[in-house]
């Protein structure tokens, strides 16, 4: 079933929309959630919560890219739940990625609340990267892939990937600071 057809089901308030979403993107969402939450049951609950989020968001929203729309909601819910997991000393899949990302940025202060400016600058920054570096950066900090997975995908050593990530994080933090987006 096409995305547009699934979205139409949401607009018609047809509960089979959720079934269709799960058929098409369930595994993708579980992958997104599963890399953040190491517990399969938590990931499953997170995906179910994401479907509720999609149900509540459509209508009125009509996402252009439905797969990513569902994925982003799933990621946010998983990140929210991640704190809970950590408090319980469970789940360390994404912890390293979150820690290294936060530690680099927190050196420069806190990001400002200007979402529009952040959007513009962050995307401009990503556009300035070569595609390999950009994909490595996004896989690590958006999809929470492990360094080893990323290295295998690009036939690089883990050390090489870590260096690339480190340099990119620093460039990222420097750019935000330069643009006055850290306070």
């Amino acid at each position: 079933m096409l995305d547009s057809q699934i979205i139409e089901l949401y607009f018609a308030r047809d509960e089979s929309a959720i079934v269709r979403t799960d058929e098409k993107y369930g595994r993708y969402c579980r992958a997104v959630a599963g890399r953040i939450l190491s517990d399969r049951k938590d990931a499953e609950e997170c995906v179910n919560d994401a479907y509720v989020g999609v149900w509540n968001a459509i209508p009125p929203k009509r996402p252009r890219n439905f797969k990513l729309f569902v994925g982003i909601i799933t990621r946010n819910i998983a990140l929210d739940r991640f704190d809970y997991n950590r408090a319980k000393k469970r789940g360390d899949g994404a912890e390293a990625a979150i820690d290294e990302f936060a530690s680099t940025l927190s050196d420069g202060g806190m990001p400002c609340d200007d979402v529009l400016a952040l959007r513009e600058i962050i995307n401009d920054f990503l556009a300035s990267l070569d595609s390999r570096t950009r994909i490595i950066f996004m896989r690590r900090y958006w999809y929470m892939c492990t360094v080893e997975e990323i290295a295998a995908g690009f036939k690089l050593t883990s050390a090489n990937v870590r260096v690339i990530l480190h340099r990119t994080r620093r460039r990222f933090a420097a750019r935000l600071k330069k643009e006055g987006l850290m306070r």
Binding site: N65, L79, Y143
Partner: peptide, 20 residues
């Protein structure tokens, strides 16, 4: 907290998410 930093990437263009 730390997770809020990584949520900065919520504003990333869909094309970069898809690309990766």
């Amino acid at each position: 907290n730390k997770k809020d930093y990584i949520k900065l990437l919520n504003v990333v263009d869909e094309r970069y998410i898809e690309e990766a």
